[in-house]
Nucleic acid binder design. Sequence first.
DNA 1: GTCTATACCGTGATAGAC
DNA 2: GTCTATCACGGTATAGAC
Lengths: 196, 196
Amino acid sequence: MTMAKRDTYTPDSLLAVAVAVFNERGYDGTSMEHLSKAAGISKSSIYHHVRSKEELLRRAISRALDGLFDVLEEPGAVTGRAIDRLEYVTRREAEVLMDELPYVTLLLRVRGNTDTERWAMERRREFDQKVADLLERAGADGDLRADVDIRLATRLLFGMINSIVEWYRPGRGGAASRDEVAEAVVRTAFAGLRKP
Amino acid sequence: MTMAKRDTYTPDSLLAVAVAVFNERGYDGTSMEHLSKAAGISKSSIYHHVRSKEELLRRAISRALDGLFDVLEEPGAVTGRAIDRLEYVTRREAEVLMDELPYVTLLLRVRGNTDTERWAMERRREFDQKVADLLERAGADGDLRADVDIRLATRLLFGMINSIVEWYRPGRGGAASRDEVAEAVVRTAFAGLRKP
DNA sequence: GTCTATACCGTGATAGAC
DNA sequence: GTCTATCACGGTATAGAC
């Protein structure tokens, strides 16, 4: 904390600082005073860049959601067998999560106390449903193991992907790289899903 | 909210109400006013049962940790091949998580803002380490797939188990039961871990 | 673009009557 | 065991000078 990030702030560079603090202390556990200390400017100066604390949350969450939804439009996600599209989406979602780590982390921790948070949860549900549909089709194609429960499998798959935010830290020497993590997720998940 | 849970409270019955609210709004997002409404008694009456808001958190977290650690002492966790002990622990942890759902949920969401929260995180790390050791031994025994990275696998395994708190709701008709969920977790995880 | 000063309200917690 | 009344503090946000 109390890092001097000199030069004047843009809304985006201030957002980056804010999101880091939100993730460390939790959104509700972060006061404007905390943000002011971390950004190296006064509380009231923050209000020159954003209208409210909640606006910071909204901007961060939007960025995360955009990244996740964009994957569903990529060629690998819209053509081919459902099971292959599912594997593509799984890998890409893991990658986006790591590329936009702080923003997605914040999104995943939202609880629903404000309108912004409820909107975020609603969009997340939409997203999850689209992936669940893919899994459903893979099942209809006969490409899933017989003993797989679709709803349960969807949840465990997301559980594995989303848990990455709890421990992945970019560029940490000795630990797994972005691509290794994505590969491990895909391999582990599809060992339990794909018909041998 | 605003449920009348008449009869006088014991510390434990009050805790149950508080934990439910903490999980819905987040600990920092919950005020004593929220708790008072949910419990149907005044703010000051709550202080007759507990010394502080943080004490409620500590009690809840302790209960969760006790449940999780106790599994590691059970016969199935201390005798046999490491890979089998790991499978036993995985299933039992999933079960304990579902049996003590609200308490474990709260534990998993702690961020580290207070002494209580940092203590909880420390104990969680201890716990994770013990399971990681089991995975390590299973690897040394040659019971894991060759392409499994131990550290990564540990994290994905916990990610899957812990994600249960995000969606499992006991006794919800039509959805998977406690035992079905535990079985699915074990099956899915070990398909990616155990040497075929 | 940043500051100091401040308005105003909700917070966790206590005092003391019943 | 529960209540009303109250405290001291920190919360978000604004006003207006530089």
